[in-house]
């Protein structure tokens, strides 16, 4: 499973569709379509990404939504929790040392810290700050597209920032994604791994950056939204017989009837009775007293049926014994 967690959203749907087809062809399984937000958030926070997308997407591709919020003022109050309910992933793009520190240490409910790698930062990334963020489960993202399509300056800055991030985090908790405005900037997952190796990530870490770490982001975000306090989640709770009980909730007679039916060896008359009962029920709902009576009757019927079981077994055993005798007699004859 390969992940590319940053495909920018464009309103040009033909191009987006082409990009998705190309990304699927490169071998990615899960991608996130990203919306950029900055400054003061509008009151109306609805996602501009139509759901479902108005064109055919490759069947192998799993699509998520994501927003990237550019953070320039540390005092600004962002309604992050409301963003979490709209988008699958929430990414923060800090622009200064102060906002980076705030993002790493205190911002709740974020998944990714996506530094803009094409500009030069006039400060060192501090290891303690970044590791604190990684301990909280937040991952750092390096977007490689600017390094491929961008001019020399952007490419140099990207490589410089990427190596600095790798140094400060020791290669842990890094996610590689594209941020490709055009399909031309996307690269295959293994090519991205090789780029990561060139930036000083170890081979294992580079593979993890497109597989395990990215999956951790996706699963963690889903858990936070769906589970109990981000810890406990019911994956499969078994079949819930809700519909059946509703049908029978009206009357217990129905339940008794089913038990009678299950018994198998009933007389023909009983089944006819049951059918009549059903017809009656359809005409008017029975009273509580009637229901209780029927339930008692059903219980009784089951009890008698169970009691009848051993008799049958005895009968069967006798017949088998007879068969054995016959077989022995036959063998004697042959002897």
């Amino acid at each position: 499973m390969f992940y590319d967690l940053n495909i920018p959203y464009t309103t040009n749907h033909a191009e987006l569709q082409r990009t998705l087809a190309f990304v699927a062809e490169l071998g990615y399984n899960t991608i996130a379509i990203s919306v950029n937000l900055s400054g003061k958030l509008p009151t109306d926070l609805t996602s501009p990404i139509p759901s479902p997308l108005p064109f055919s997407i490759p069947p192998s591709l799993h699509i998520l939504t994501r927003c990237t919020l550019t953070l320039s003022d540390p005092s600004q109050n962002h309604r992050l929790t409301s963003l979490t309910s709209i988008y699958d992933l929430v990414a923060i793009r800090p622009t200064s040392e102060k906002t980076l520190q705030q993002t790493c240490l205190s911002l709740p409910t974020i998944d990714i810290i996506s530094l803009d790698c094409t500009i030069r930062y006039p400060f060192y990334f501090r290891q303690s700050t970044l590791l604190a963020a990684i301990d909280r489960g937040v991952r750092f993202e390096i977007c490689y597209a600017q390094g491929i399509l961008g001019a020399g300056e952007a490419r140099r800055n990207l490589i410089s920032n990427a190596t600095q991030l790798v140094r400060a985090t020791r290669g842990k908790g890094i996610v590689l994604s594209s941020e490709a405005q055009r399909a031309l900037a996307c690269r295959g997952p293994w090519d991205v791994v090789n780029l990561g190796i060139g930036w000083g990530l170890g081979k294992e870490r580079a593979v993890e950056a497109v597989q395990r770490e990215a999956r951790g982001v996706v699963v963690g975000a889903e858990m936070r939204r769906r589970s109990y306090r981000g810890v406990v989640d019911v994956v499969y709770g078994g079949e819930k017989p809700v519909v059946e009980e509703k049908g029978k909730g009206k009357n217990l007679g129905g339940k008794g009837k089913e038990m009678v039916g299950k018994g198998g060896k009933r007389k023909a008359g009983d089944s006819v009775d049951a059918a009549e009962v059903v017809v009656d029920e359809a005409e008017k709902p029975p009273s509580k007293r009637e229901l209780k009576r029927r339930a008692a009757k059903a219980r009784k019927a089951v009890a008698t049926e169970n009691a009848g079981g051993p008799d049958n077994a005895v009968e069967e055993s006798t017949t088998t014994k007879e068969n054995d005798d016959v077989a022995m007699a036959n063998s004697k004859d042959q002897g």
Binding site: G147, I148, L184, R187, D191, V192, N194, L195, I197
Partner: peptide, 12 residues
């Protein structure tokens, strides 16, 4: 080989 590979990746 990784250098050659990266160069191929950077080709547009």
């Amino acid at each position: 080989y990784q250098v050659v590979w990266a160069a191929l990746t950077y080709m547009t």
